[in-house]
């Protein structure tokens, strides 16, 4: 967080920002953490860690600006730096391969599935949730940020520290993968 403008707060102001702007976001942060880690204890640790860092670096936060985006960025960075490193398990996919794929030119191709609106509407929450959780974490993350948390592309670019064009292409790829998963699932269950 170096290089960012510092804002001087008195101890009282720090506490007030923390109480009134940061703590009310615990619900969104916990849900984001859970969807990243898919584990309750890890999600709790990640949220605690995020709040500790937020307090320590509170002078990098400008009062009245987007606290949610700021905290989501801290949480996402903590997840990458600590949780991913901690897990000895190698990434299930070759990251570079994936990166090359979703940055390639054919990312805008239309994936046509035989999925229909009615089929999607008949699915239950668990089916949608499982399909989403089954996506690689980078793809899952953009869908969570955009569709569940309602962040704009420019906010997502800041949270994820990637160019806005990459936000767009990653989101595109993520949604196509999700659609493929839902379609496969629907076929398996005989919905299609």
């Amino acid at each position: 967080m170096s290089g960012e403008e510092k804002h001087k707060y008195t101890q009282e102001e720090k506490e007030s920002v923390f109480e009134s702007e940061f703590l009310p976001l615990v619900d969104s942060l916990y849900n984001f953490a859970y969807r990243l880690t898919l584990n309750e204890d890890d999600a709790k640790d990640l949220v605690q860690d995020t709040y500790m860092k937020a307090f320590r670096f509170i002078e990098s936060f400008e009062k009245g600006t987007n606290a949610k985006a700021w905290l989501f960025r801290i949480l996402k960075n903590s997840f990458i730096n600590e949780f991913r490193k901690k897990s000895k398990e190698p990434s299930k996919v070759d990251y570079h391969e994936v990166e090359a794929f979703y940055n390639s030119d054919d990312v805008d191709e239309a994936i046509t599935t035989d999925l229909r609106v009615e089929t999607v509407q008949d699915m239950i929450g668990d089916e949608i949730s499982n399909a989403l959780n089954g996506l690689d974490v980078d793809f899952r993350t953009v869908i969570i940020l955009c569709d569940l948390e309602g962040f704009k592309y420019d906010e997502m670019a800041k949270i994820l520290n990637i160019p806005i064009g990459t936000v767009r292409s990653r989101l595109h790829r993520a949604r196509n993968l999700l659609k493929e998963k839902l379609s496969r699932y629907a076929k398996k269950m005989g919905y299609l």
Partner: peptide
């Protein structure tokens, strides 16, 4: 549009553990 709406309405929110805020 239908998929977006389903994600929003069906991915249920998880309850924040009771002790999380006090522990923070």
């Amino acid at each position: 549009k239908a998929i977006r709406n389903m994600i929003r309405s069906k991915c249920k929110k998880r309850e924040v553990p009771n002790d999380l805020v006090s522990s923070i």
